[in-house]
Design a protein around this nucleic acid. Sequence first.
DNA 1: AGTTACCTTTACGTTAACGTCAACCTGAGT
DNA 2: ACTCAGGTTGACGTTAACGTAAAGGTAACT
Lengths: 131, 131
Amino acid sequence: MNDLTIARTYSISDLAREFDITTRTIRFYEEAGMLEPARNGQTRIYSDEDRVKLKLILRGKRLGFSLAESRELIEMYDPASDNAKQLHALRNKIQQSREALEQQLADIQVMQNELDAAEERCLEALRELES
Amino acid sequence: MNDLTIARTYSISDLAREFDITTRTIRFYEEAGMLEPARNGQTRIYSDEDRVKLKLILRGKRLGFSLAESRELIEMYDPASDNAKQLHALRNKIQQSREALEQQLADIQVMQNELDAAEERCLEALRELES
DNA sequence: AGTTACCTTTACGTTAACGTCAACCTGAGT
DNA sequence: ACTCAGGTTGACGTTAACGTAAAGGTAACT
């Protein structure tokens, strides 16, 4: 941990507000083993690291990933593995994720084109109405 | 319909095989009002148009869209609307879809960068093991 | 006539990702 | 002492998107 990075903390509702989700959702992610906030007595205390993880989960969600998939993605970010086999398996996962993202990119581009065409037809129909 | 376009038809399992889904799934989409195949007696007969709609649904699914969202997207493709208000509403939806896709594009690009970094760390760890 | 390969409807089961209470604690202000 | 805004742990409810039998129809081989 760098001296320059101030270690902020967050309450559960701080994060809920920031990301526009409910506290239930955050606790649910913890139940699912994706967050492990510190505690002050009973109360959960979230670190910047927790916050980043939450961000990753939500980004995965926007891309249509399940929690299980997001969990895998998060685990890829620190190769704590100690043996080569694990590391090679990790590389395979990374490669698979890449391919999934490529597919999504292609899907999005096709869809954008179709939206362009759809808007064109829409404008055309509007011009028809005016004439 | 153009004379050059041959009007093919498909059985439910034809489509199931082609898209690697179950027949149950296809019937489910029909229950949800997203497909209306012709019938020969009881048996469903799918046209090319049905097939395209199915394709759209599945692409939406890959992007994490719900069926309801995919339905909206499909409806955008033919502006059967007759009044200007509907058409303007449609344009708004198209615009919203565009923004959602832009968000996804951004998410994907960030994620791709992170995967690059993750693989780098992974390779680094492997080099450590070899040394 | 019997089996096989598809097709059908009806209907209950399942999983993920939360929502929604209920009942309780707890520190800060009045 | 009381209230109040936050927090907590159960625990059951809900919705979407199918899965999974059960029970049956039909056309085509053998």
